[in-house]
């Protein structure tokens, strides 16, 4: 029996060597695969991969550009609308003081007209308002209740005077916001309010104030006939 055994030994060794080589190769290959994902790829595959990465990169940077532009546009438009908002707020404040829909505070004068003979009438009050406006008064109120605005009218009504729909009684107190010295000087000018009141037998006290606060608001109403022309 040793003869066939010996005969079989060499081929078995060859088989063992081949299997060992296979096992060796498998081990090497498995370990290599673990370490580098791209190491087994062919050159053409790598080129393809690189190209697709390039394309993706380009798309991404295009997207970045677009988004940056959109962001800039949004930022600038929001800045513009903020500026417009500030402008509109400022304008609303200006118009509110002008139209008498907002209270006002600032330096000014307080004129007190006392006339025992009741000779100071609507015409003199209107003159007073005109002279105050001429001197740069920005907000005017009579007796703390009747705000004087563009639509305000002055009418005699018996012993009293109607100022823009409100009846004011004597003594008349006119408060005006503006440069105090200019306003006071305008009242004292020759032929001005002081002269007219004294000619009517009354007295005029002119007090300059650091702070005049006007809380009376004008009655606003929507225009019935007038429409914006543009």
């Amino acid at each position: 029996m040793p003869e066939p055994r010996r005969r079989k030994l060499v081929p078995q060794l060859v088989v063992a060597v081949l299997l060992g080589g296979l096992a060796f190769a498998v081990t090497v290959q498995v370990r290599g695969n673990d370490s580098e994902a791209y190491s087994t790829l062919r050159q053409t595959e790598l080129v393809e991969l690189l190209r697709s990465l390039d394309a993706a990169n380009e798309r991404a940077s295009q997207q970045v550009d677009e988004l940056t532009r959109t962001r800039d546009e949004l930022a600038s438009s929001s800045q513009q609308s903020q500026a417009a908002q500030r402008q509109a707020d400022k304008r609303a404040t200006q118009l509110g003081i002008l139209a008498g829909t907002l209270g006002a505070r600032g330096p000014g004068v307080e004129l007190t007209i006392t006339d025992p003979e009741d000779d100071v009438n609507a015409a003199i009050l209107l003159d007073a308002v005109e002279e105050l406006r001429d001197a740069g008064a920005e907000a005017i109120v009579v007796n703390g209740t009747a705000r004087v605005v563009a639509q305000t009218y002055f009418v005699d009504e018996g012993d009293e005077v109607r100022v823009g729909g409100r009846t004011v009684t004597r003594p008349f107190v006119i408060e005006a916001i503006g440069d105090p010295d200019t306003l006071a000087e305008a009242m004292r000018i020759r032929g001005g309010l002081l002269d007219r009141v004294e000619n009517s037998g009354g007295t005029l006290d002119i007090d300059t104030r650091d702070t005049v606060t006007i809380t009376a608001l004008a009655d606003t109403q929507d225009p019935e006939y007038a429409r914006p022309s543009s």
Partner: peptide
């Protein structure tokens, strides 16, 4: 052959 297999893995 089994020995060869084991030796191959061990070598790798």
């Amino acid at each position: 052959p089994v020995i060869g297999l084991v030796v191959g893995v061990g070598l790798g």
